[in-house]
Every structure is written in structure tokens, then in C-alpha cells.
Design a protein around this nucleic acid. Structure first.
Lengths: 187, 187
DNA sequence: TGTAATATCCTAGGAGTCCTAGGTTTTGGG
DNA sequence: CCCAAAACCTAGGACTCCTAGGATATTACA
């Protein structure tokens, strides 16, 4: 009998794919084991419990998103940087819905510190360099930015914008324009 | 042996309370039955399955929120109406986290049509009366509004704003100001 | 008031999930 | 080649969702 060759990395990767397919909260140890052709109990040599699997997916997603955002923003500033940042988020959320919702999982401090959260936060602050904001307006603006992008992406995914004829794409562009003018003329 | 007196209304109410306590996706038939001092199987005379319980909670939440928003907005216009609308949402999400997340549940068309979704939508449009917007900017603005409010509330609940010293309350006020100026000078 | 119909609740049980305990097999280093 | 660690297994307990079919309480109506 040949071994399945499960290890932490492959397990996390498979968990992320599974989450994208069936939804983050349908992410189950049994399904994961099935995917490896292995019994449930076998996975507990590699992972403490389901919670750890979820945490791993969240950390992976955070790192992946930070990478994509960094790549998208490279060499851009002002409105371009803003759009790159926002589009990267929306794109990631669409391609990887399970991973995206995973990122909402609250992480314990040390896990969060070891994650790409800081890197992601730095990237967000980089957007503001193109605008003229000082603290505490910076923090307020970042929170607003995150809220709008996250809210839009979430509601769009939940089908909240499907009732009206107006294409979501158009509203997205408008939202980016709005955010840009907002950051330009912060009250 | 005295009957527990379960019926659709009491069941929905109890489910909503339970969801607020343990989280919407921890809402379970067994826990619900326990709360009524009844066996799991007994609940299936009143409800088809867990999905229906969840749907009921979502519909209830939609109606409750619409009520609160309507009450908060009564007699207000412009920035006041906007703030009332947003605060009502944030307040409801804080008081009833389970119910709030329930509202993200996609409803089938006939359930949605019978729900308070339309009423809620009308209330949202009412905000824009204080500003000078025509279609399709109206739809775009509404989507932005919803996104920002929902995003803020969600991220706040997930503890996303706890890492910085800046009190969330201050950023919330700033966000409302920002939305107001944005609606006033829509690009 | 007595009885029939209905609504409510029950027991029993299958299937799926999470997880533990403890045993067996595979693999790689000495 | 042997043996220790790693990978995997079986067995099983606790919990969940749900179905089938039976018992009991409540209501309706004759």
C-alpha cells in the first residue's frame, strides 16, 4: 500500500481548494481525508483539529492576497494604485471565495503576528501616499477603504446586486471613482 | 406531561436568540430542541429542516431591521437620515450578530418577495432624496452605501479594527462624514 | 359529554462529522 | 539488515441532521 504523502503544506493547500469549492464553513476533516484517500483519523497526525485547518487556510489566504496586491500595485500611484488594490481584492474573492471568507477568522495574536497581515496593512497605507492625509484621518480612511471594498465584494458574492438591472461592474467603477474623489477631498 | 408549546413563531424567535448567542452557523436543531425541552425529532413537525430555520431567522431579521431603520429615519433628512440609517444598521448588528449575519443568506425569489427586503430597499432610496442624484448614479450610490456600512460593521465585529489605538467610534463618525460629502458631490 | 381527528411529541435508528486511544505498517538512517 | 519515527489504520464515543412510525395530548364536533 502506497502512502498518500500528507504533510502540512499539501494539507493546507488541499483545504484551501476544498474551501473554495464547498465554502469555508463546509470545510470538513472528513472531506479533506477523502480527498487524500485516507481515513479521518490519519489527518490528526498533521493537524490538531479543524480549527487549525481553518486557521492555516486563513494564513495562506492572507499571504496570497498580500502577494497579489503587491504585484498589482507595483509601480502605480494615486487612483491607479487604489484601483489595483481594490481590483486585486475583488479578483481574489471571486477566484477564491473560500479563502476569502477564511480571512475573516479572528487569529490569536501570535498567529496574526506571524502572518502577512502586517504586510497587507503596509500595502494599504501605501495607497494613501498618493493623497494628502495625516493621522488620524489616515486610519479613518484606511478603515473606510477596507470597509467599502470588503462590503462590496461580500454583498456581490451573496448576490445582493443581482436584483437590479445595473451591471455590478459599472457600480464597481463608480465606487472606485467615488473613493478616489473622497480621498482627494477628505472632509 | 405538559406540552412544550412549540409553534412556528416561538421557534423562529428562539432560533434568532440562539443565533445571537452562539453564532448563526452554530444554529443547530439539537440546541433549539434542548431550549424547548423537547427531542430533536419533534421540531420537524414545525419545520422542514435546518435550512428552513435559518431562512426564517433571515426573514425575521430583515423585518426587524427594516422596522428599526424606519423608526430611526422618521422625520429626518440629509445627513441626519444617512446617519440614522447607518447607525440603525450598526446597532442592530451589535445587538443581534446572529440575526445580522443571517440576512446574508441568499433567499429564493418568492421568499425574498414576501420579505421586508423591498421595504428596506425603499428606505435606502429615501436617503438619496436629500441629495441630487439620478439613475444610474442612484443605484451606484446605494450599492456603495450598503457596501461601506455592511463592510464596516462586519470588519468591526470580526475585530478588524482592534489593532490600532484609534477608537472605532471616531472612525465611524468620519466614515459617515465621508459618505455625506460623497453623496453631496457625487463624481 | 364522548369520541374522532389532528397536532404534538416520542423512540429508534441511519448517516455524517469531530476527535481520541491505541495498534500496525512503512520508511529512512545507522 | 534493523529499528525508531512517521504515517496510517481500526474502533468507538459524542454530537448533529433527519426519517419512519408509534404514542399521547388537545381540539372539534356530534
Amino acid at each position: 500500500m502506497v502512502r498518500a504523502g500528507v504533510n502540512a503544506e499539501r494539507l493546507t493547500q488541499a483545504a484551501a481548494e476544498l474551501a473554495d469549492e464547498v465554502g469555508f464553513d463546509q470545510l470538513t476533516v472528513s472531506a479533506l481525508a477523502r480527498r487524500f484517500g485516507v481515513k479521518d483519523a490519519s489527518l490528526y497526525s498533521h493537524v490538531r483539529n479543524v480549527r487549525e485547518v481553518r486557521t492555516r487556510v486563513a494564513v495562506l489566504a492572507l499571504a496570497e492576497l498580500a502577494d497579489r496586491v503587491a504585484a498589482a500595485m507595483a509601480g502605480r500611484a494615486g487612483r491607479d494604485a487604489l484601483a489595483a488594490f481594490a481590483d486585486a481584492h475583488r479578483d481574489y474573492a471571486r477566484r477564491h471565495p473560500g479563502r476569502y471568507t477564511a480571512m475573516l477568522l479572528p487569529l490569536d495574536p501570535e498567529t496574526a503576528a506571524a502572518s502577512a497581515a502586517q504586510r497587507h496593512s503596509d500595502l494599504t497605507r501605501a495607497i494613501l501616499r498618493g493623497y494628502d492625509l495625516t493621522e488620524p484621518a489616515q486610519t479613518d480612511a484606511i478603515r473606510l477603504l477596507h470597509s467599502t471594498i470588503h462590503g462590496y465584494v461580500t454583498l456581490e458574492a451573496a448576490g445582493g446586486f443581482g436584483h437590479t438591472a445595473r451591471p455590478s461592474e459599472a457600480s464597481w467603477i463608480a465606487a472606485l471613482d467615488a473613493l478616489h474623489t473622497l480621498l482627494t477631498n477628505w472632509p
